Simulated scan of single mutants.
Amino acid sequence: MCGNSMSAPLPAIVPAARKATAAVIFLHGLGDTGHGWAEAFAGIRIPHVKYICPHAPTMPVSLNMRMSMPSWFDIYGLSPDANEDETGIKRASENIKALIDQEVKNGIPSHRILLGGFSQGGALSLYTALTTQQKLAGVVALSCWLPLRSSFPQASANSANKDMHVLQCHGDADPLVPFMFGSQTAEKMKSLINPANITFKSYRGLPHSACPEEMVDVKRFIEKQLPPISDE
């Protein structure tokens, strides 16, 4: 592979059906790309919302015997006490904040931008929302965990998102990111932001993936957090 291995192709985008007055930035999981999620959002699209599904850069991943694959940061293990790639997580978070800034420059205020992701992408979306000065519309966190959780609440002391709404979803048959991680993450989140604004939904029999029922819940959450603006 030649060139800069840290660079990634342009995001997959589902444009708004009319003028975009809100945006969803959604981050895929390890080894994936944004294309599948762009297709999923095209199926539940809301006319005034633009969906941006960036692709992670390709890098060697310790968890998978250092094989190179799309990954937002390195993962050493999936146990609660595994070491974490603090430098990589923070770098990836800064890149997502830059993506949010780009949409603000494009005319969508940050409080009309919802951040989300699946698995590793969901982990990064939670971390970014808790450490950014950009006031966001909320977070959709699917089948994931909170990275560097021992660095909180200090890391979220200056966050603009103490009152953001979070929809966290997790399958109760997840063999990769155990359901317990999801429920523990929801409890940790309740100690960091307004607990009344956190919704944790479980899906019976769902492994490490999404399901139609979950996508309906995601759509309802987006509709609630990103309603149309009255002059549309």
Rank of each mutant, 00 (worst) to 15 (best):
3 G>T: 05
5 S>T: 06
11 P>M: 05
17 A>T: 11
20 A>V: 08
22 A>F: 12
23 A>D: 01
26 F>I: 03
27 L>N: 05
27 L>F: 12
29 G>L: 12
30 L>F: 13
30 L>Y: 11
33 T>S: 13
33 T>M: 08
35 H>Y: 12
36 G>P: 02
39 E>N: 14
42 A>W: 05
49 V>S: 11
49 V>M: 10
50 K>W: 05
54 P>S: 06
63 L>R: 05
63 L>S: 06
63 L>I: 15
63 L>M: 14
63 L>E: 06
68 S>K: 13
72 W>E: 03
73 F>D: 01
73 F>N: 04
73 F>E: 04
74 D>S: 12
81 D>Q: 12
84 E>Q: 15
85 D>P: 12
88 G>D: 02
90 K>A: 07
91 R>E: 10
97 K>P: 00
101 D>L: 11
110 S>C: 06
117 G>V: 04
127 Y>L: 11
129 A>L: 02
130 L>M: 02
137 A>D: 01
139 V>M: 00
140 V>M: 10
144 C>V: 01
144 C>G: 00
150 S>F: 08
151 S>I: 04
152 F>A: 03
155 A>Q: 08
164 M>N: 00
165 H>T: 03
166 V>C: 03
166 V>D: 00
172 D>L: 08
175 P>Q: 12
177 V>K: 05
184 Q>P: 03
187 E>M: 11
189 M>N: 03
190 K>L: 00
191 S>N: 05
192 L>W: 07
192 L>F: 11
197 N>C: 14
199 T>V: 10
200 F>P: 02
204 R>M: 12
209 S>M: 10
211 C>S: 05
213 E>V: 09
217 D>S: 13
219 K>G: 01
222 I>P: 02
222 I>F: 08
222 I>M: 05
225 Q>V: 06
229 I>T: 11
232 E>T: 04
